[in-house]
């Protein structure tokens, strides 16, 4: 079988990124939008890994680590905000 071309990996990453972008643009529910943002971040990480293995350097994996940590921090804060807002909306409508 032919060896993997670096461009093929980048095309896979582009397809995943485009799918995430389509999800963000189409969905209206905040949970689904956060999921699509996770897909996009993951596709960016895949592109970094592809670059790192193309040049045989560890820098790609290090950038992937930074993306991972950023995604974890972002998702914890965003989910806390979603939780607060939905709980407060429910409380408000229940009181009325």
């Amino acid at each position: 079988m032919a060896p993997i071309s670096a461009h093929t990996v980048l095309i896979v990453a582009a397809i995943l990124f485009i799918l995430g972008l389509a999800g963000v643009l189409t969905r209206k529910n905040i949970i689904f939008m956060l999921i699509s943002i996770e897909i996009m971040l993951n596709a960016a990480g895949l592109a970094f890994i592809a670059a790192g293995s193309r040049w045989q350097q560890p820098d790609g994996q290090i950038m992937y680590l930074f993306i991972l940590a950023m995604a974890a921090a972002e998702v914890s804060v965003a989910l806390a905000m979603v939780y607060r807002s939905i709980i407060s909306i429910r409380h408000w409508t229940w009181k009325i």
Binding site: P3, A6, G52, S53, R54, Q56, Q57, P58, Q61
Partner: peptide, 18 residues
Amino acid sequence: QRAVAMAVVTPRQVALSL
């Protein structure tokens, strides 16, 4: 088009650079 080399970037290299 460039092929991806089939060598593994080990965790040791990653840790040393990190």
